[in-house]
Design a protein around this nucleic acid. Structure first.
Lengths: 209, 209
DNA sequence: CAAATATACGCACGATCGTCTATATTGTTC
DNA sequence: GAACAATATAGACGATCGTGCGTATATTTG
């Protein structure tokens, strides 16, 4: 074993399949062909192992989704790039069991404790990246002024999480392409260069004959 | 203990918090103030308990989300009603740990076996309900003919799953209202009585000056 | 009433869990 | 070369896991 980094490389994969709670020191040691107490000693407790694994997964997400988009200008271009790289990342199978953070945030959402708090913090950070780019796009005049950043970030995030879900549970990668198209459509729809929103069917109905 | 039904009432709650795998016969027995072997004997194996718990959760979902919408006409009205009742159901805290099936499908998506297959079957069923109502709405002329049912079902489902995620992990019920509004907007946007789709910003840009 | 079935209990099994202690092997630094 | 921190090992602990077996009660069925 080359210390923590090598262990975390495996633990991230194992946890993406079995969950952060399903991650086990014994099984991790067996897979690394190392004694259980060696792995334990490196982290001191299971909770520390979970936190370190989460941090490693966050780094991978940043590396694969955020970093490639940093070459694009902040605001709408970067928002568009994040959508593309997020979908690419789903297809790339960086994690054996699908997006680590999607799984972890669903798994831990009911159990109090430091691990859950750390997962929530990472996800707030992620939503924050989306929101701040939406706000930047509005400030730059690329997105219309009536956009609600939190609501739009919610919709964009929903697309990716559902894409990962459909790919992993149903073994259907069509969801990723649905997400890609819907992400683009969402940005287009609220683009400042797009015509103003047409009256909705609901509003038309209210107008009467 | 009043037999299986009483056990399942609790196991569904426990599994919604701790996951289907985190569900434990011993802890379940303790909470029911009953001996471990009593619970075990009722189901014969943990796997059977998991499958029975899943079936119970499916029944609850049908009861709270599908059934209320059955009073609306199949197609667009029912699709709209499902969205409302789904959001109501998120707010109602029927499950202590949030939507059982959202959590279970993220948790089990990496582990092969009968339980995972059963979860996938329930979710396929759910997506099928959305799709078939979309198709019915198209056939009735309520939704436009260029709608892709699978893609639209994906987008609608994504909204609900993200709403549950935001509520449970971030303790923020704003996501539910975002989902409610986005669900309505999605239906309006593709309604046949709505004006045809305006050119997108992307397409406008391509036209040049 | 007798037979049968469902529900419950108590106890014990092997396995695995997280954790701990004591010790050996490194590689680095003074 | 000595001192030291990091990394590894072996072995054991109490707890809990899923799973069995034998048995007692309670309800239903014949």
């Amino acid at each position: 074993m080359r210390s923590r980094a090598a262990v975390l490389e495996r633990s991230v994969q194992m946890a993406s399949r079995d969950g952060l709670e399903g991650l086990t020191i014994g099984a991790l040691a067996t897979e690394l062909e190392v004694h259980k107490s060696s792995v334990f000693a490196l982290f001191g407790s299971k909770e520390e192992l979970q936190l370190a694994t989460l941090a490693a997964a966050r780094a991978i997400l940043i590396d694969h989704v955020i970093a490639p988009a940093l070459t694009s200008r902040e605001g709408l271009p970067r928002l568009s790039a994040i959508g593309e790289s997020w979908c690419d990342y789903f297809l790339s199978d960086v994690f054996a069991g699908g997006c680590f953070l999607c799984a972890a945030s669903m798994e831990m959402d009911g159990r109090p404790g430091p691990v859950r708090d750390a997962v929530a913090a990472v996800m707030r950070e992620w939503i924050g990246v989306l929101s701040s780019n939406i706000e930047a796009a509005m400030a730059a005049g690329d997105l219309r002024g009536d956009v609600l950043p939190a609501a739009m970030a919610f919709r964009l995030n929903a697309l990716g999480m559902a894409a990962n879900w459909q790919r992993q549970l149903l073994h259907d990668r069509a969801g990723i392409e649905h997400a890609r198209l819907a992400w683009r459509a969402e940005l287009d729809r609220h683009s400042a260069t797009s015509p103003p929103r047409t009256r909705t069917a609901r509003e038309v109905a209210k107008l009467g004959p």
